[in-house]
Design a protein around this nucleic acid. Structure first.
Lengths: 158, 158
DNA sequence: TGACATTAGTTTCACTTGCAACTAACCAGC
DNA sequence: GCTGGTTAGTTGCAAGTGAAACTAATGTCA
């Protein structure tokens, strides 16, 4: 460790710290989706997108929710089998199909949303509003720059 | 969506956003460790801890780097086989053993540290120092609270 | 029209992961 | 110095993952 260099302390290393926080958040959320609804995080993301935007293709789901197409494929299949989403052919382009929530899926969505928002609320409770805004702004910058530094691809976490 | 409730927008949902940022950061870092040194994130965390604290047990490595004991076990085994760490018996408690960097491991550590710090630097470049401090402070709060909300365990991410 | 590239989505495969069960060693308390 | 509980670390296993290969459909350009 020569002059002018800084030592590395893992517990202060931002990429590490972000990851630890992300894992805790995922685990806590997975509990909510999982224990009460038997739904994992990829499934949740699909449901969240469909609940927000309605009918969409798997490609768009992956694009918007930052998931690899194989993960979307498997999540959609699982939800389809369980009757929470339905697929309908796009006659204008038969490679893709539209995915949408069924009535049962919409009910699950309606139940999860308040739980998810309550979790977020509880998680960020007591943090000053302006600090939280700063946090989110910095997070957005880091995410965008991270996307560039990570490369081209397209994928996931929770 | 009744009165008084807020809609959920996944792309603004903090747990989701943290995860996306974490994945990008991990991927970018994994590139650095992986492409140049053939080292994965668990291995990197072990090396980072040993480089910082010297000789320690697997238990302590896991504790400090937030990794499940099986992950630590496998990472240490791999590094041992590759000659980057060495294990030495603790005669006072023969269940555990001390792990430490070999000369080769120390060289790898010395090479990775500046790359890791340069990455962090590049990643956070241009963000105002006070905003970054706020970010880190909020991150610490979220991490601690996340730990509680997630449960008791002990584990990982990148 | 036909050849070639591209795209949506699925499947196969190798790898990583965490949990649970296990082994070996230590630590009561009697 | 036993007996039962606890701890450090490893291993078997089932689930989840992404890359790559694949299928089927669409687009492009001559």
């Amino acid at each position: 460790m020569a002059d002018g260099e800084h030592a590395l302390h893992l517990e202060q290393f931002v990429p590490y710290r972000i990851n630890v926080a992300a894992v805790f958040a995922s685990r806590a959320l997975a509990r909510i989706y999982g224990e009460k609804f038997g739904i994992g995080i990829p499934e949740w993301r699909v449901i969240a997108q469909l609940g927000e935007f309605g009918r969409m293709t798997s490609r768009d789901i992956g694009e918007l929710s930052q998931m690899h197409k194989t993960k979307v494929s498997r999540a959609v299949s699982g939800l389809d089998q369980r009757g929470l989403v339905a697929r309908s052919e796009n006659r204008a382009d038969r490679r893709e199909s539209f995915v949408s929530l069924t009535a049962a899926g919409a009910r699950v969505y309606a139940q999860i949303v308040p739980l998810a928002l309550a979790f977020e609320q509880r998680w960020t409770e007591g943090i000053a509003a302006d600090e939280l805004r700063t946090f989110e702004r910095v997070l957005a910058v880091l995410t965008e720059r991270g996307r560039l530094l990570a490369g081209t691809y397209h994928e996931e976490g929770a």
